Computed example of a mutant assay.
Amino acid sequence: MAFAAANHSGIRHAEPKISENMLAVENKIATSINAIVSNLQPSPEEHIPAKESLSQGKITGTEALDKGYLKYGCSHYRRRCQIRAPCCNEIFDCRHCHNEAKNNICVDQKLRHDVPRHLIEKVICSLCDTEQEVQQVCTNCGVCMGRYYCAICKLFDDDTSKEQYHCNGCGICRIGGSKNFFHCDKCGCCYSILLKSSHPCVERAMHQDCPVCFEYLFDSRNDVIAMPCGHTIHKTCLVEMQEHYKYACPICSKSVCDMSKVWEKFDLEIAATPMPAYYENKMVWILCNDCGSNSEVKYHVIAQKCPNCKSYNTRQTRGLAR
């Protein structure tokens, strides 16, 4: 019995030692497993680049960016988004579409208005119809809504053959390539680089309506040219004027082209048309529209020639002097 008790007592004393050893082994195993798991699982800092990389892959992927290229847009722009006009909260393909719809003779004059391009805040992706803040790439489908994008003018355009560029002086985007144009601070607009040292400056020359069709020239989408006098006009309007034999600026009346050959024909016609004796020596005062000089010349029923610049682009300012 004593042996049994001693033996039993020994067993009870041995149990704590075995449990401690097993616990130590289990702790070592758990520590090893945690170390392995921690090595396999990246830290939160390592997760961030991975997510960014995935997101960037979605946005910059060629397939996503080019989806629908040149298949969407309107008569004004090829683009993959529409705008929400801040003035009337309606959706249009572009600001020109808005202006054509909201500023024409069919609309009540009190309700006519243009959309302020710089205040546009929302665009709608044409592929997934997601409305979002103005940006080049759709936040939902990752499509590029316009290969040319200006964050200032809120302009999108897939047709980059126009060579669009933003002019800080004008404050708007223009076409034709920045290398081909320069901004004249006095005129307040961009001109061809060929005119940089030769164009006559007229203050705010482009900030006016075309003298023929009365469209505002500064942000017109039609070609605008500067006449020799410095005033501006639509190219098509100038051609139409010349087709109707009008060769003087509608604003200041200066000749818009070289008229020397025409003046030679006037010389021949006047020489072949003598005046009656009563008018032969009659004198009148004229103002030359080309050089601005006032002169007293012989009156002729066909025209009066400026003695200063030899132009017949003159007007009679005083009647027959004697």
Rank of each mutant, 00 (worst) to 15 (best):
R147Q: 13
Y148M: 08
Y149A: 09
Y149C: 10
Y149L: 04
C150V: 01
C150R: 01
C150L: 04
A151P: 01
A151Y: 06
I152G: 04
C153L: 07
K154P: 01
K154R: 15
L155G: 08
L155C: 02
F156H: 08
D157P: 00
D157N: 13
D158V: 04
D159V: 05
T160C: 08
T160D: 03
K162W: 03
K162T: 00
E163C: 07
E163H: 12
Y165K: 01
H166E: 01
H166N: 04
H166M: 06
H166C: 04
N168Q: 13
N168T: 11
N168I: 08
G169Q: 08
G169E: 07
G169W: 05
C170Q: 11
C170S: 13
C173Q: 11
C173Y: 04
C173T: 12
R174A: 06
I175L: 06
I175M: 13
G176W: 08
G176K: 02
G176R: 04
G176Q: 07
G177N: 10
G177F: 11
K179A: 11
N180G: 03
N180V: 02
F181G: 00
H183W: 09
C184G: 11
C184P: 13
K186R: 14
K186V: 15
K186G: 09
C187W: 06
C189A: 10
Y191H: 15
Y191E: 08
Y191M: 08
L194M: 09
K196L: 06
K196N: 10
S197N: 01
S197A: 00
S198Q: 02
H199I: 09
C201M: 05
C201F: 05
E203V: 14
R204N: 15
R204I: 02
A205R: 01
A205K: 02
M206N: 03
M206T: 02
H207K: 12
Q208C: 12
Q208N: 08
Q208E: 12
C210A: 00
C210P: 00
E215W: 05
L217W: 08
F218P: 01
R221S: 03
N222A: 07
N222H: 13
D223V: 12
I225N: 12
I225D: 15
I225H: 09
I225K: 14
A226C: 15
M227L: 15
M227Y: 06
G230N: 14
G230P: 10
H231P: 05
H231S: 09
H231A: 03
H234R: 10
K235F: 10
T236A: 15
C237Y: 05
C237G: 06
L238D: 02
E240W: 00
M241T: 01
Q242A: 02
Q242P: 05
E243P: 01
E243M: 12
H244F: 07
H244I: 03
Y245L: 11
Y245D: 14
Y245V: 12
K246I: 15
Y247V: 06
Y247W: 10
P250Q: 11
P250E: 12
I251Y: 01
C252V: 09
S253Q: 10
S253K: 07
S253A: 02
V256I: 15
V256D: 03
V256R: 05
C257T: 14
C257P: 01
D258F: 13
S260Q: 12
S260V: 11
K261N: 09
W263D: 12
W263H: 07
E264I: 14
E264A: 11
F266C: 13
D267Y: 00
L268N: 10
E269L: 13
A271C: 04
A272T: 00
